[in-house]
Design a protein around this nucleic acid. Structure first.
Lengths: 223, 223
DNA sequence: GGGCTTCAGTAGCAAAAGCTACACAGTGCG
DNA sequence: CGCACTGTGTAGCTTTTGCTACTGAAGCCC
């Protein structure tokens, strides 16, 4: 099957025993998401484990007043841990998931995943490791949120998310949404960054000019 | 052994196979913490899994500018998940842990815990479940932080942490630390709550007078 | 009771963030 | 070219939060 072959490009699924492979193949479904499609809604019951095969998903929370904030991204080969979480605890999904770019997602039904978990050490490790990673990301995010101003968070976001050429292709509106703030705040802060010669802005993108200036702002003294 | 007996009061450790019991008994260490003692420092390497036997631990993060914020609490029978997390990923501990009340902690060495994890389904489930719970708590906390003002967070904290008689025994300074803000802000907000007849304040404690008023503030319209 | 420490209540000011509003630049299209 | 649409740069104002400082009240020890 096509989907199974795709899935087996990624480590933990390569090493499964023969009958586990069959089990996996039986229930596997793939799902295509166009850019900006919602993959999962908040409050939706979770039917299985999600593994991203291609593209990129964005997990974010949406507050009553309309501001959203990105929690983290899921890249190919990674699984959506929140879904795992819900799977093992019978919870409703606690956030929103949207495709950043057109994406392909493999969906392993809950029952199948649980059986795999019982018998395959590789899946056990994958599960624990994935959960751990998420915990770590959330901790970092949480620490970041209440230990720093928007100024620092913006600098950090630019540093972390810019492509290897130091350019971040994103409108200020999107940037504001990722940080859970408004466009004006982003514009004001960027204006200051530009004045200091740290970045340059143009329509739809931001280019880093002084990496160390930004770094110094994010973690002062850590040179 | 005393410590083992203590540990076995809690579910997953009751159901272990005989040889697992022996394994567990070999490496088990207990640790006493007085009130406000630090159980774990940030950046400290983690030597094993922590299970709280008695008392209560507080996990919090500390930002460069000195403000701290409570991430969550660990009650008897629960394990410190962050420690588990570090254990499986060889990470340094990412936060601080302090005893809220005098506490007893059982420490299961890393190697022992990993072997238990491999062979005991009960421990596997415990691990996954504990991690999941933490993920959920962190998600909620993160959502709360950036979707609501201090006013709402304070109301929420009072509702969640007050004893069954509706009284929260805590100074305003401590309250401010839990929320990652300052005493003045807490005092100002409480003043407003008092004016609306929602709570009454006295030295070292806050008493809830109008549960529904507070609830309405936390989640408007949810009656 | 007197003196000390801790906690609570207030005030005033400065910084940060959010909201509304508008002018202008860039892009695409007929 | 003119037009519409989207993204950016500003401005002014309000609310929230943070910081400094002082006063008074509650509890504790001698």
């Amino acid at each position: 099957m096509q989907a199974l072959a795709e899935l087996q490009r990624f480590t933990p699924f390569k090493a499964l025993a023969g009958d586990s492979q069959t089990l996996l193949a039986q229930g596997l479904v793939t799902k295509q998401c166009g850019s900006a499609d919602m993959a999962l809604h908040k409050g939706q019951p979770v039917s299985g484990a999600y593994v991203v095969l291609a593209g990129r998903l964005r997990v974010f929370s949406l507050s009553p007043n309309g501001t959203e904030a990105t929690l983290y991204f899921i890249d190919p080969g990674e699984t959506c841990v929140l879904a795992l979480n819900c799977l093992f605890n019978d919870l409703l999904y606690p956030a929103w998931v949207q495709a950043e770019t057109p994406s392909t997602i493999a969906l392993i039904p809950g029952a199948v995943y649980r059986r795999l978990f019982e018998r395959e050490p590789a899946i056990q490790n994958l599960t624990v490791h994935t959960l751990s990673t998420l915990v770590f990301r959330l901790m970092s995010e949480l620490e970041l949120v209440h230990s720093s101003h928007h100024k620092q968070r913006l600098a950090n976001f630019i540093l972390m998310q810019s492509a290897s050429d130091g350019v971040l292709h994103m409108t200020q509106q999107q940037l504001a949404q990722h940080l859970g703030t408004t466009r004006e705040v982003v514009a004001r802060l960027l204006q200051e960054f530009v004045a200091r010669g740290w970045v340059s802005t143009r329509r739809g993108a931001i280019a880093i000019k002084d990496l160390f200036g930004l770094r110094e702002l994010v973690s002062p003294g850590a040179s």
